[in-house]
Structure formats: structure tokens, C-alpha cells
């Protein structure tokens, strides 16, 4: 009961302290959508397709450009499949690593952890605050994209854009939580960043190669990027299994952090 109050106080505080940084990231993500979406009609869907067609087919598949000539494929190749996840992953993994381990190394966690708040409650408040920030940035990306798609008159459904935005949120929150959990377990920010970033990058590469190599379906099954994109959410809507897997990954990271963080020495 008072634990709930403590969680809310912590969430509020994390959002207050980070609001300026958050605003900057929102502008950056809006810019990504703002630069790429209006570019589509200028290229003319078919024209872009003919340029892409001159590339070797393996490369096209690896770049995820196989459907770039369609409006949905274009959004996937640019905003939802490449730039927004790249930016948001930098944000999310950085935030996750700093939230516990970074502050712990710099000494900023001392006051929070010595306050009359349970450690698991403190941790939960901070993870939820991180989820909220990632969510707000995914919403920004989704809303700006949806608006511009309307303005430009691209033939993409709103539900497809929302489905992709939801997947973006789930993907980034999964990696951000992994980084946070590694930091909460080890207390080392560098390890948290390294683990989060290397899983994210290898997952991206696995997704890119899945259409090229033999037994690519195996890669697709293992890669969180594929869980997000293989079902083509912009065109097909929510790929339920993939999104459930992303949520599960986040849950596992939560569990690892909650198991270890309350039990270990801080700042050593």
C-alpha cells in the first residue's frame, strides 16, 4: 500500500529529472519520421523499386528493401525497421545502463538506496519510469509518422502504423530492460551497455541475414528483431507470437533484476 506510493513517487521523480533529455530525443525521433516519410512520393514508389532492383537480391533482402516499392515496405525499411529502432535503442540501452549501474558507479544511488524505500520497490519504480520514457518516444514516432502519412497521402493503414509503433516499443523496452537488469545484477555500466548493445546488434544482423542464408528461419525464430519485423506489422498488423516473445524477454529481465538487486552490496 505504501509500497505503491513509493513506486509512484520514484516514477514521478525519474520523469521529472529526465524530462529535458526526453524532449530532445522526442525531437530527434520526430525528425526521423519527418525526413523519411515525405521523401516517399518524391521518389515515387515504383521509381525507388527500380533503383533497388538493380542491387543483388541477397543485398536487397539483407537491407530489408524487398518491399521498398510499397508504402508499407518503405516505412518498414526506413522509419520502423532502421532509424527509429537504432535511435531508440541507443536511448533505451543507455538509459537502462545508467538507471542503476551508472548511478551506482557515480554515487548517485546512495541517497535513493538509503532512503526508507525497499530496494525492489526502488528498482520497480525505475524500470517503470524507463518503460514510460521509451513508450512516450515510440508514441512520438508513431504519431508523427501517422500524421505525415496522412498529409502525404500514402496508402498505409493507421492500424498498421500503430502495430509497428507497438512493436518498436516492445523491442526497445526489451533491450533497455536487459541493459538495466545487467546493470542491476553487476553494478557495472560498461557491462550493461556492452551486453545490451551486442545482443541488439547481433539480433539485427540475424534478422537481416535470415532472408539470405540457408536455414534462415532458425535465425528468424531467435532474433528479437525478427519477432518485431518478420510478420511485417505495417502491412499485416500485430504479429502476436513475436510481440508476446518480446514481452516475455522483458519479463525475464525484470525477474533477473528483482532477484539479484535487493540482495547484493551496492557501490562496490
Amino acid at each position: 500500500m505504501s509500497d505503491l506510493r513509493d513506486v509512484l513517487v520514484e516514477i514521478r521523480w525519474q520523469l521529472v529529472r529526465r524530462r529535458r533529455a526526453l524532449l530532445g530525443w522526442a525531437v530527434a525521433l520526430a525528425a526521423v519520421a519527418g525526413i523519411y516519410v515525405p521523401f516517399y512520393p518524391a521518389m515515387g514508389g515504383g521509381e525507388l523499386q527500380s533503383i533497388v532492383d538493380t542491387l543483388p537480391p541477397e543485398l536487397i533482402s539483407a537491407l530489408g528493401y524487398d518491399r521498398i516499392g510499397t508504402p508499407a515496405g518503405y516505412l518498414t525499411s526506413t522509419v520502423f525497421g532502421l532509424l527509429a529502432p537504432a535511435l531508440l535503442l541507443v536511448f533505451g540501452i543507455g538509459l537502462g545502463a545508467r538507471t542503476i549501474a551508472g548511478e551506482e558507479e557515480e554515487g548517485g544511488l546512495e541517497l535513493a538506496a538509503s532512503a526508507p524505500v525497499r530496494r525492489d520497490v526502488l528498482l520497480a519504480g525505475r524500470i517503470i519510469a524507463m518503460h514510460t520514457q521509451v513508450f512516450l518516444l515510440a508514441v512520438t514516432t508513431t504519431v508523427v509518422t501517422a500524421l505525415l502519412v496522412r498529409v502525404v497521402g500514402m496508402d498505409v493503414t493507421l492500424s498498421g502504423i500503430v502495430a509497428a509503433g507497438l512493436g518498436l516499443n516492445l523491442l526497445v523496452n526489451a533491450f533497455a530492460t536487459i541493459a538495466l537488469a545487467v546493470g542491476a545484477v553487476t553494478g557495472r555500466r560498461a557491462i550493461a551497455v556492452a551486453v545490451g548493445a551486442s545482443i541488439a546488434v547481433s539480433s539485427y544482423i540475424a534478422h537481416a541475414l535470415s532472408g539470405v542464408v540457408e536455414r534462415g528461419d532458425l535465425l528468424e525464430r531467435l532474433s528479437p528483431f525478427s519477432w518485431y519485423l518478420a510478420g511485417d506489422p505495417v502491412a499485416q498488423g500485430v504479429p502476436i507470437v513475436g510481440y508476446v516473445l518480446l514481452g516475455t524477454l522483458t519479463f525475464v529481465a525484470w525477474a533477473a533484476a528483482l532477484t539479484r538487486f535487493p540482495r547484493r552490496d551496492l557501490g562496490v
Binding site: 529529472r17 529535458r20 548511478e103 541517497l111
Partner: peptide, 11 residues
Amino acid sequence: YLPGELDLDGT
């Protein structure tokens, strides 16, 4: 509690 190495960051 006053920590020995007090780090206050953020805006």
C-alpha cells in the same frame, strides 16, 4: 545519511 562521495546530477 550524508554519503562520503556525494554525486548529484541531472537538471
